[in-house]
Write a protein that binds this DNA or RNA. Structure first.
Lengths: 338, 338
DNA sequence: CCCCACAATGAGAGCGCTCACAAAAGCCTA
DNA sequence: TAGGCTTTTGTGAGCGCTCTCATTGTGGGG
């Protein structure tokens, strides 16, 4: 019983065939006698043989590795997307290397990309990255199948997005439908595509209803929600409803409202975006726009795999978000009854 | 200008040296004339050469890859730990492959472990996994440096834990110090080491103070917090304080309290565990026990790297959590003033 | 001025696998 | 039974690197 790991020749010897036949079994070659295959498989099991990925990769120059590039902050948010992508990839025999870059400097991005290059990555998925970085990725890894999530559509690569514009419309129209006319929007980071689209959805819905828009630019953080909330609630001219670009902002706004003694939804209706697991348990439970990250992950991996096989058609796919009505929004008239 | 990727021979030709000299530059061999090194480095830069990890791995049987095994549910919680581990590993030239297994079945674990085996992983980090799985990992990957996070200490491998026992003590003593005597504990999953220790801390603190313990077993979810909270608040004999084994449970309890018209902290003091980013913004902001995941990640990677060099001493390291006092707990006497 | 030690570089093999091609084994038809 | 298929299996090369061992250059002591 040797302690050394078995290789393909050991298996071949034990099975009484050539190494090439073993390789064929490994790769599901069609022309193989079933009994030969069985013999080899027995030998494999007996020796606990596992093909050495490095050797395989060296000759095929395929690593079975997918790089997942995320901006640092994003990792806190929809970690569901990572999980979903990872498990989908695994069922297809791929492994995922997640790289989250915290700094905004070009250098740290190039560093991360360089690492992927050395690993001979087969595919790259980017989530919520600025266009410049994606261009660098494409330049540095021309052979990798690229799928871009949550970035401005482009003809240069495949894009998979939540339909944020429609999400913004959904949220805003829900409030308008409840009779609200003074609806304020707290946006996400101004330079990020997702928040731009949500804001645009808001603006279009308001315009269509003949209402005046009022926007405060923010980011994705709870603390900004709190800060802007306090600012809003200190003015004499209160909106009757607020649409926040994500759930975390909403949480901050709820906190600010409680500071000022304002009730949600009686005094102010509030709607968020994302449907994080906690949203249902906010006080009050949060009306929001749900993104299905699990499904997104499945589609993303499917896309990567298909791009691996044939050249990508560089199309953009939109996934539809869904309005989840809970208790943070209410008919404007309800306010008068109170 | 060839489109093909440069290899070590291309660099050698351009620099006018042998391939072996290039290899020496790559590996920082000491006996190298500085000018030779410079020449080679120039050629590397000019050709944008990157060493092929697969080839290197094939001969050294080192992959520069670290596997991170997490139970599926965990990924939603302390994603900070993943991020921290990943970025620490990267600065040391390692890549991290995250695998989160959702199912509890032995088969799906073996599947994940098999994948790591094929990749010739250098090190494995497990987070909050049951002992049986860790034993499987150790058996299947005897050559990988193993570091175990959040599991019962053992002489068989290195363990790095938050000092959950002390955390439980900290939380409970905080409540006792405020004059509470009827303190209830909602625990995490009974079969998980972390929650067992937190519960034990609670029990020890209560016993020392001569108080009667009261425990409800739960899990890590908000919905369980809500459910148990409603159960607690429906009884006639209310506790004056509750210690939840994590922040999510607390959120559920807050919700339950609001349903029943109970105020926190005036009627019930509440303390959580974790200090998730949202905790500060709960209504009321949550008193909790903070775990520093960033620091944990740094220590974990340092440990993995040191185990790679020399045999592990199989020691257990405890990191101290910190009490964060916010507004969900208050002196028991305050209740009477109200 | 020669020899030896040591520094600096080069040459060739081989890691474990897949690829292209070659050979053997069946099978059918004439 | 020979000839020509197709199916099934075997052989040798080579992916890009690091390893071991061999070779060349350099300087100082006898």
């Amino acid at each position: 019983m040797s302690t050394k790991k078995a290789n393909i020749y050991d298996v071949a010897d034990l099975a009484g065939v050539s190494h090439q036949t073993v390789s064929r079994v490994l790769n599901n070659h069609p022309s193989l006698k079933p009994e030969t295959r069985a013999k080899v498989e027995q030998a494999i099991a007996k020796l606990e043989y596992r093909p050495n990925q490095a050797a395989r990769q060296l000759v095929t120059s395929q690593s079975q590795l997918i790089g997942l590039l995320v901006s640092g902050t994003e990792l806190y948010g929809p970690s569901g997307i990572l999980k979903s992508i990872e498990s989908e990839a695994r069922t297809s025999g791929y492994s995922v290397i997640t790289i989250s870059v915290l700094s905004r400097s070009r250098e740290s991005w190039m560093d991360a990309i360089g690492q992927l290059r050395g690993l001979n990555i087969d595919g790259v998925i980017t989530v919520a990255l600025p266009r410049e970085v994606i261009d660098e990725v494409k330049a540095a890894l021309p052979d990798a199948a690229l799928v871009v999530v949550a970035t401005e559509p482009s003809k240069d690569f495949d894009v998979i997005n939540i339909d944020d514009l429609n999400g913004g419309l959904l949220a805003t129209n829900h409030l308008i439908g409840q009779g609200h006319t003074k609806i304020l929007h707290i946006s996400g980071p101004v330079n990020q595509y997702e928040s731009q689209m949500r804001k645009l959805g808001y603006e279009r819905a308001m315009k269509k209803a003949g209402l005046k828009t009022q926007v405060l630019d923010g980011d994705w953080s709870i603390s900004t929600g709190l800060e802007l909330g306090e600012k809003i609630f200190s003015s004499k001219d209160l909106p009757t409803a607020i649409f926040c670009s994500n759930d975390h902002l909403s949480l901050g706004v709820i906190k600010a409202a409680s500071h000022k003694g304002l009730r949600i939804p009686e005094d102010i209706s509030l709607i968020g975006f994302d449907d994080i697991p906690e949203a249902e348990y906010f006080l009050p439970s949060l009306t929001t726009v749900k993104q299905d990250f699990i499904e997104l992950g499945e589609i993303v991996i499917a896309k990567v795999l298909s791009n691996l096989k044939e050249k990508s058609k560089n199309e953009t796919l939109f996934m539809q978000p869904k309005l989840i009505v809970r208790n943070s929004t209410t008919q404007l008239t309800a306010k008068k009854r109170k």
